[in-house]
Design a protein around this nucleic acid. Structure first.
Lengths: 152, 152
DNA sequence: TCGCTAACTTGACTCATTCCAGATAAGACT
DNA sequence: AGTCTTATCTGGAATGAGTCAAGTTAGCGA
């Protein structure tokens, strides 16, 4: 069997992604990538805890530095749902959106409906040069829905 | 001429909107509503400055309380574009979206393309009960676009 | 006009994140 | 292997947005 198979078929392993982006391969960086593959949409603190569990001591600074560097390099995408700290994910490049639970804050990916990009261009763009359309769906996750029913 | 005509035709004056929502009419609340009608998409701090300019001393806490109460009551809508503090607007009830400048942070309203609501329902909602689709367009405003051209 | 209660004041406090700056460690090109 | 850089570490301090708590003020219905 292959060692360290990439999480997503067709994608490079963490190490190779770093190299491809012209970044040095370091333990904290691999740790951050691995942590986010294991738990997508984690915030900085959660990532730090994962990385520390895997590698031992890693400074908070280092985690923030890595998250910034990888986001800058396009290996991570940073999302910031209203009301929660910044979260990161390794799914980049595709146009997917997010579904956020108002109650527990959990975030799940949703594909952009259909294969076309529906809302990518607002009609009269007010002179803006638009480069991205971000769609966030708000609601209640299955767990929180059933919990609120119980209390009703 | 009518005194204190509502800002939007067909809408109630700030005072009446408060009463209609079952809220007490107080100077800070009227100040906040007026400030946001004058400058939509202002953050808490900007609102506080406007209100103080109009009324004299008003505590920061009062401004936050008012913003929360009015948001709760449905008189304000809170938006939180990534990277900036929470902003508020008095346009509620209609399904409009936002265009945010990556450079200067300015926010402008965009109508939801067409009259239908395009992206309101993600297809397989993963069991979520979705109640809102928030669309944010990112780009450069006309001013920042021309400035970046000059430096090129 | 009175009194109840919602709304406001003050001030301390949390939390995520950033900045700083010198010292150390470890990739990677030669 | 050696050197040059780029990352990371320690750890302290600062920032900005927003919250908590307890006491005071004032809207508004009776």
């Amino acid at each position: 069997m292959a060692t360290d198979a990439p999480a997503t078929p067709g994608e490079l392993a963490p190490e190779d992604r770093l190299r491809a982006a012209g970044l040095r391969v370091t333990a904290p960086r691999l740790g951050v990538l691995t942590a986010l593959e294991r738990e997508p949409h984690a915030d900085a603190d959660t990532v730090a805890r994962h990385v520390r569990a895997a590698l031992g001591a890693v400074s908070t600074q280092a985690v923030y530095d890595v998250l910034h560097a990888l986001t800058e390099a396009g290996l991570l995408r940073r999302i910031e749902p209203a009301g929660s700290a910044a979260r990161y994910e390794t799914r980049v490049g595709d146009n997917h959106h997010h579904l956020v639970c108002r109650s527990c804050g959990v975030v799940v990916d949703v594909e952009c409906s259909g294969d076309a990009v529906p809302c990518l261009t607002p009609e009269p763009a007010h002179g803006f040069v638009v480069d991205e359309a971000e769609v966030t769906f708000w609601g209640l996750c299955p767990t929180c829905t059933s919990e609120s029913k119980e209390n009703a």
